[in-house]
Design a protein around this nucleic acid. Structure first.
Lengths: 106, 106
DNA sequence: GGCTTTGTTCGAAGAATATCGAATGACCAA
DNA sequence: TTGGTCATTCGATATTCTTCGAACAAAGCC
């Protein structure tokens, strides 16, 4: 882990990278789960992959500008990036409206 | 070329594949150009790649369900797939509204 | 200080993707 | 039928992505 996670400036977030990040089933599921409500702990997604793989996907989502990571004690809290809507209005809504509901399940 | 191009059934078109297809700059440019108006001839995109590479991207777009290909004499006409809006309402609009205008240039 | 929990980082292996040039095929025109 | 145009396919290469296990690091607890 690390003290502070590096997040890109919102102006540096690129549409192509956002779309590519969303094109992976697991990553889309993570984003959909976060969109259902609040932030979540890193480990609360029961992703069917090894921790190192999940960590990789989390990094992709963070670097693409989709989510934020925050340290809380020994745990990592993941949340949708709030300023994404202002950077790409309507994008996340349009995508998530179309993703099957069960993808948001815990 | 081929007599008839294979297109997926609209019901088989997957969101993830659409997003992945759109995540490539050249492919997004092609789709944006098509969205500006009418269909276009294959060669009228002045893509900065070799013909074989363009052909590859066209195939990706077609297989992802984003465009249709139609034979016309010795040429190939490319168009946005009309039933995509009904399959994923609002998706293409949301994405294209956010893509820089010059990407639609010929 | 040790131990546990929680993620990250580091290779490495395998799959997928992007790109090109060369060869090919389909159609049209002369 | 010979050639030209337009696009696809094939084979090759280089890059990127996905995935894992092993090792590591930070924070808190005993």
């Amino acid at each position: 882990m690390q003290e502070h996670y590096p997040h890109p400036e919102i102006a540096d977030v690129q549409l192509g990278e956002v779309l590519q990040a969303l094109s992976d089933p697991l990553r889309l599921r993570i984003v959909a789960a976060l969109a259902q409500g609040d932030e979540r702990g890193w480990g609360e997604f029961d992703a069917p992959v090894a921790p190192s793989t999940l960590s990789h996907h989390m990094k992709v989502l963070r670097q693409a500008g989709l989510v934020t990571h925050r340290r809380e004690g020994t745990r990592c809290i993941v949340a949708l990036r709030p300023d994404l809507e202002e950077r790409f209005p309507g994008l996340l809504g349009a995508v998530l409206r179309l993703t099957p509901a069960e993808q948001g399940a815990k």
